[in-house]
Amino acid sequence: MGFVELLMVCAILPICCLAGQGAPERHSLYYVYTALSKAVNAPGIFEFTAMGLLDNRKIDYYNSKDQVKIPQQDWMKEKLPADYWEKGTQSRKSKEQWFKVNVNILMERMRQNGSDVHVLMWKHGCEVDKMADGSVRFVRGVDAYSYDGKDFLSFDDNSMQWVAPVTEAVPTKQKWDGVPILNQYTKGYLEKECVDWLEKFRTYGDEELKQQVNVSPPKVHLFGKADRSSNTLKLTCMATGFYQKEIEITILKGKEVIKKGDIGDVLPNGDGTHQIKLNVEAQRSDMDDYRCEVYHIGLEEPITKVWTLDGEMCDGTSAFLIGAVLGGLAVLILIVLILVFIAFKKKA
């Protein structure tokens, strides 16, 4: 699998939400930790990194070189006291040591030697819906580990048990499930503590986040890709550059709704904004009958665009691929780069 294909895999990972005017606002808080089995000679890639992500925006960061947890948003630095960052730094250092030990354990369990680089990743956090009346509803919690890019172990919030999709993870599952109080703590963190922190961070950054919504409405682009063997066109409507994820995008033929996008199709760009795109197939002779409508809080009025034969057409390598790459999940790009680097080293 090549670099672009790996990015595409990341880009299509869903973010599960519901959409529509008046629908709840979906918000998330995740922490992602990544550890390598040994150092690699590549710029920007460290043996251990940790980052916090609020609605896919990086809010804090730590790496094994600098060994300091630092804010990534001005409002995080302004609102949180110095001891928060000091305690956070000590916590990250402890986790860095934990990861080093456990990467070695997994390598032994997998019967791997130290010639190759291996990657252990942990993602944990929560998602909530903010209702129209201001109340918050817990949607789901995630506490999951992957090893070399494959699922290794995850926490089932309902049963309060760990799920082991591979044989090598069973010993860890049995050990952790054998301490029920730890599983109760994990459930409590996901459903209560994580939600409290999410709401606190959202409150701290509320003014800036609102400004971002106001100054960054979606930009809408239409594309058409011709099928060389027929008169069929692949029509794409893409909205990008917006902060607030709640958006309605619809492709119509005349008055008939052909396809409608929801928040589950929204992907983050690398700069904190988002993008969404819809694809439909159409006959070339009917293309002028198709239009795309976009509704978003950042727009003074909805955007409607119509495909025309003199629009942006692609007859070979699709421009959609470029859009998808640019909109790939920012948190996973580092992992992709690491895996590509590892694959390259194995071939060398």
Score class of each variant (00 low, 15 high):
residue 3 F to A: 13
residue 5 E to Y: 05
residue 10 C to K: 10
residue 10 C to A: 15
residue 11 A to H: 05
residue 18 L to G: 04
residue 21 Q to K: 12
residue 22 G to M: 09
residue 33 Y to H: 15
residue 35 A to E: 08
residue 37 S to P: 00
residue 37 S to I: 04
residue 44 G to Q: 07
residue 45 I to F: 08
residue 46 F to L: 08
residue 52 G to L: 00
residue 55 D to A: 06
residue 58 K to T: 08
residue 71 P to W: 12
residue 79 K to N: 13
residue 80 L to F: 13
residue 85 W to Q: 07
residue 85 W to P: 00
residue 89 T to Q: 13
residue 93 K to M: 11
residue 98 W to P: 01
residue 99 F to M: 07
residue 101 V to Q: 15
residue 105 I to H: 13
residue 110 M to R: 11
residue 111 R to K: 14
residue 120 L to V: 02
residue 122 W to M: 13
residue 124 H to G: 00
residue 126 C to E: 06
residue 128 V to C: 04
residue 131 M to V: 05
residue 135 S to T: 15
residue 143 D to Q: 06
residue 155 F to W: 15
residue 162 W to M: 15
residue 168 E to G: 03
residue 177 D to R: 04
residue 177 D to Y: 04
residue 177 D to P: 01
residue 184 Q to N: 04
residue 186 T to G: 00
residue 187 K to Y: 11
residue 190 L to F: 10
residue 193 E to M: 03
residue 200 K to F: 04
residue 202 R to F: 05
residue 207 E to P: 01
residue 214 N to K: 15
residue 215 V to F: 05
residue 216 S to Q: 07
residue 225 K to H: 13
residue 231 N to I: 09
residue 234 K to I: 14
residue 236 T to I: 15
residue 240 T to W: 04
residue 241 G to P: 06
residue 242 F to P: 00
residue 242 F to A: 11
residue 245 K to A: 02
residue 248 E to K: 12
residue 252 L to Y: 10
residue 252 L to M: 15
residue 253 K to F: 02
residue 254 G to S: 09
residue 256 E to I: 05
residue 258 I to L: 14
residue 262 D to G: 05
residue 264 G to K: 09
residue 269 N to V: 02
residue 270 G to I: 04
residue 271 D to E: 11
residue 271 D to Y: 10
residue 273 T to I: 04
residue 276 I to T: 10
residue 277 K to Q: 13
residue 277 K to G: 05
residue 280 V to A: 00
residue 284 R to H: 05
residue 284 R to M: 14
residue 287 M to I: 12
residue 290 Y to H: 04
residue 295 Y to S: 09
residue 296 H to P: 09
residue 299 L to F: 09
residue 299 L to E: 05
residue 301 E to C: 00
residue 303 I to T: 02
residue 305 K to N: 01
residue 306 V to P: 01
residue 309 L to A: 03
residue 310 D to S: 05
residue 314 C to M: 03
residue 321 L to N: 02
residue 324 A to T: 14
residue 326 L to I: 14
residue 327 G to T: 03
residue 328 G to Y: 10
residue 329 L to A: 11
residue 334 L to F: 00
residue 339 L to M: 12
residue 345 K to W: 14
residue 345 K to H: 10
residue 346 K to D: 07
residue 347 K to M: 12
